[in-house]
Design a protein around this nucleic acid. Sequence first.
DNA 1: TTATTAATTAGAATAAGTCTAATTATAAAA
DNA 2: TTTTATAATTAGACTTATTCTAATTAATAA
Lengths: 130, 130
Amino acid sequence: MKPKGLLTPQRKAILDVICASSDHPTAAEIMDRLRKRGSQFAYGTVYNTLKYLTETGQIQELRVGEACRYDARTEHHHHIQCTACGRVDEVFAPIPNEWAEEVARETGYLLDQDQLLLKGVCASCRAPTS
Amino acid sequence: MKPKGLLTPQRKAILDVICASSDHPTAAEIMDRLRKRGSQFAYGTVYNTLKYLTETGQIQELRVGEACRYDARTEHHHHIQCTACGRVDEVFAPIPNEWAEEVARETGYLLDQDQLLLKGVCASCRAPTS
DNA sequence: TTATTAATTAGAATAAGTCTAATTATAAAA
DNA sequence: TTTTATAATTAGACTTATTCTAATTAATAA
């Protein structure tokens, strides 16, 4: 079935939730937030919509940790996850070109400059009196 | 219960399989390979052992894609996954220091230099007459 | 209108992984 | 040695994230 690409009320509500979130929510968190707004859709609808929005470039899917997370920012950027609390933040510093070339040479891969996942410990997890 | 850290026959067999694999197998693939060698252990044993071997630094756990993968190489290095076929390869080129500092400054994270996951398209997936 | 097909729905199915309670194995103490 | 304590293994139930399926609803085109 070829999709018509309609912005149905369900798709709009889901996109709205993602755009209103800066914490890269998972599908489950998106469903929670929809419920709080008074909308409740079938699992299948939410997952289909997330796939549709990703494929049409309206959101970005991040495979990090055990569940996929979704990001309304579609500009080129990377992500970093805290190994202590699991939160995911944006990284806008671009990869240095020489390093990208070195990696390409070493591995034979054509690098996707957008899809970098770093790990570390976030500021609040490092705070002394947390 | 404090573990004694025994190298039981099960643990040895599992470690052997990982050491004999250069393709970062998943738990399911490890179980397959054990079966082919004539060993078959309980799910729980395999998962417990993978956790134990990871915690004692004998192997490295990679959270990439939908399933964890395991790597016998424990030296500092990164990984790159092919967005076409899913294979995972090693990357030994170290992150440039200035870039790491820039990311740390931007995000407030304390970077874990070891845990970088890149994406790209591997040489064979780029081959013309594949 | 009617036909066609896209989108949604509820719920079953799958896959990765964890948990539990019972059993087996091993090492230390008596 | 035998007993005791406890670590490791086992089978299988359970959880969580996600996909699939078949039926229904909605919307567009003829």
